[in-house]
């Protein structure tokens, strides 16, 4: 049994709600950066939204990006400081609605950064409104009768857009079991390694629970991911070392 140790990069208790997935993902990122010896080289471009709460507890250099623009801010840093390890840390509303253009163009340029998108299917910080990733029929604060795909479209699968481009690494993981959490760590590590080897754009999207705005217990939220969310968002690695993986 390995020693249980909190990464030194987690400098304070996190400020997320009980049962939130961000805490797990922050810890995984901290572990990966430390294991790879990158704690001193990392710069995080932070989204606006719950992901931005990371600023209180994450001990790397970081910059607060405007809502949706984390990938553009990350681009500016990486281009003038190629020796840094640049992570854009964003939620799905931030990266895929207001920031879809900035997110996609970072991928289109094959920018040598690592993007983490935490997909919980709603806007968490503002109280659970419909997001591009909200499931059809899912009730949210702005889709009280459930998301109507006829008038609001189908859930957005960003990896489906990106995997046709020339990019370095694309993967999607989920947090609903220890097994999947371990895979998320493997994906984040691969995405950071991709950047360190100059492999171009890397993205890890993570299906993550929001018990508060889903109005579920943390346990029910995890089950919901497995039963309802994962069927819409296939898990696994889609591009590795710049080559499409035939899953």
């Amino acid at each position: 049994m390995a020693e249980k140790r909190t990464p030194a990069l987690l400098v304070e208790d996190n400020r997320y709600c009980p049962g939130c997935g961000h805490g797990i993902i922050n810890r995984i990122l901290a572990e990966v950066l430390e294991e790879m010896g990158l704690a001193d080289e990392a710069v995080v471009s932070l989204a606006v939204g719950c992901g931005g709460l990371m600023m209180y507890s994450f001990g790397t250099d970081w910059i607060q990006a405007p809502h949706g623009r984390a990938a553009a801010v990350a681009t500016g840093i990486k281009r003038v400081r190629p020796e840094t390890c640049v992570i854009a840390y964003q939620g799905d509303g931030d990266a895929l609605a207001i920031g879809f253009s900035e997110t996609m163009y970072a991928a289109i340029r094959n920018e040598n950064i690592t993007t983490i998108i935490v997909n919980n299917g709603i806007y968490g910080m503002t109280g659970g409104q419909m997001a591009p990733t909200t499931l059809p029929g899912q009730k949210t604060a702005t889709s009280p009768a459930g998301r109507d795909a006829e008038t609001t479209g189908l859930p957005l699968d960003v990896i489906a857009f990106m995997k046709e481009r020339k990019v370095g690494y694309l993967a999607r993981g989920a947090l609903h079991s220890a097994k999947e959490i371990n895979k998320v760590k493997k994906y984040i590590r691969a995405a950071v390694e991709n950047q360190q080897s100059g492999g171009g754009y890397a993205l890890v999207e993570i299906l993550s629970p929001c018990p508060t705005n889903w109005h579920m217990t943390p346990e029910a939220a995890m089950k919901h991911i497995e039963a309802e969310v994962e069927p819409r968002y296939p898990l696994g690695e889609f591009v590795k070392n710049g080559v499409k993986v035939n899953a």
């Binding site: 910059i63 623009r69 553009a72 500016g76 840093i77 990486k78 840094t84």
Partner: peptide
């Protein structure tokens, strides 16, 4: 996109 790249570069 441009102004936010400038934000990142200036911060660096």
């Amino acid at each position: 996109g441009g102004i936010n790249m400038v934000y990142g570069a200036a911060a660096a």
